[in-house]
């Protein structure tokens, strides 16, 4: 029986702006097992990143975590003070950001930035820290790590920087890593490399990963389970194969349909009709109803309950696709 490493219950993160309140994350619950890769997918503005940042409580003004529990190894992170939280960040849970070009501080060397994490979260001596930094750089595939320690971020390419960021995220050997669209800003040719590297490192050490992405193709290869998010809600969740092969929510179907497929001879790429609604003015009932081909009257009025498709496969839809329909 695997143990739950992280369990998020009824998380609500709202942004209070001049124009009104944005419910970026609205009553979201999910969990991550030890050694598991969980993917959170959805379109831009669906609340995926905010969910990731909420877990380590890095929500900046005007955002606020309104309510919810974030249980990490059974301990509620919401109850920790800021300085207690700083001992969790980077040590127990670390994060990899979307844009490697801006995530590293331009005025510190690579070595200093790796070492900073080691100073904060380990008891290593200066000599051991240097050795550990070199080892970390080597593990993420950077050649000549000794000489790279003194280099500055601007001397590195985007792919190399993301490798450095992964090295920093792994430095204190955290139990959970949250990767927020780690490959979106990289060249296509490098994306696969970086993802494979991350998966290897995480699996090799038996650590857990939350992979936030909009790329279902990537996810289907790597993840154990998938959460599909739309407008701040989890609309479908379950094991990867269930969600991909037996998707129940029309939104998930749409996402899968819009993956380009070079082998099939299609003239046009399928898309999901319409755009993500204005977050200040969300539709009543099911948030996806205005774009949904299967929507009936009830969808515009009443928010769908979460229903079990199987023991591990949940969907929030009034009219989910059932096996027999296929």
């Amino acid at each position: 029986m695997t143990k739950k490493l992280l369990e998020v219950k009824n998380l609500r993160t709202y942004f209070h702006t001049f124009k009104g309140t944005v419910k970026a994350v609205d009553d979201v619950s999910f969990w991550v097992d030890e050694g598991e890769i969980l993917a959170i997918v959805g379109e831009s503005g669906g609340g995926k990143s905010v969910t990731g940042f909420s877990v380590i409580r890095l929500i900046e003004e005007p955002g606020r975590i309104e309510s919810g529990e974030i249980l990490f190894e059974g301990k509620d992170l919401m109850g920790l003070s800021e300085s207690q939280m700083n001992r969790v960040r980077g040590k127990d849970i670390s994060m990899i950001f979307q844009d490697p070009m801006t995530s590293l501080n331009p005025v510190y060397t690579i070595g200093q930035q790796i070492e900073e994490t080691l100073i904060l979260h380990t008891d290593l001596s200066p000599k051991e820290r240097k050795a550990a930094s070199i080892e970390l750089l080597r593990s993420v595939g950077i050649s000549n790590p000794e000489s790279r320690l003194k280099a500055y971020p601007h001397q590195f390419s985007g792919g190399m920087r993301q490798r450095v960021i992964i090295a920093i995220a792994l430095a204190a050997d955290p139990k959970l890593i949250i990767a927020d669209e780690p490959t979106t800003a990289l060249d296509v040719t490098i994306q696969a490399q970086i993802l494979r590297l991350m998966a290897e490192l995480v699996r090799g050490k038996g650590r857990s990963l939350i992979l936030v992405t909009h790329d279902l193709a990537v996810v289907s290869e790597m993840a154990d389970r998938i959460n599909v998010m739309y407008c701040g809600k989890v609309v479908e969740s379950g094991p990867t194969r269930d969600v991909i092969d037996r998707s129940a929510h029309p939104y998930t179907k749409g996402l899968i349909g819009s993956i380009p497929d070079l082998e099939r001879d299609k003239n046009r790429l399928e898309t999901i009709k319409g755009i993500v609604p204005n977050m200040f003015d969300l539709p009543k009932g099911c948030k996806f109803a205005p774009r949904c081909t299967r929507a009936k009257e009830i969808c515009h009025v009443q928010e769908p309950e979460v229903i079990n498709m199987s023991q591990s496969h949940q969907v929030a839809c009034h009219f989910p696709f059932r096996e027999e329909v296929l």
Partner: peptide
């Protein structure tokens, strides 16, 4: 507002060091 300040915080760098180190030097 820069990412590297946020990343430093995600590493667990205390607030004071984020302000007078990472942000001030820039």
């Amino acid at each position: 507002r820069q990412d590297y300040v946020r990343f430093a915080r995600a590493k667990g760098v205390p607030r004071r060091k984020v302000l007078f180190g990472h942000a001030l030097k820039n």
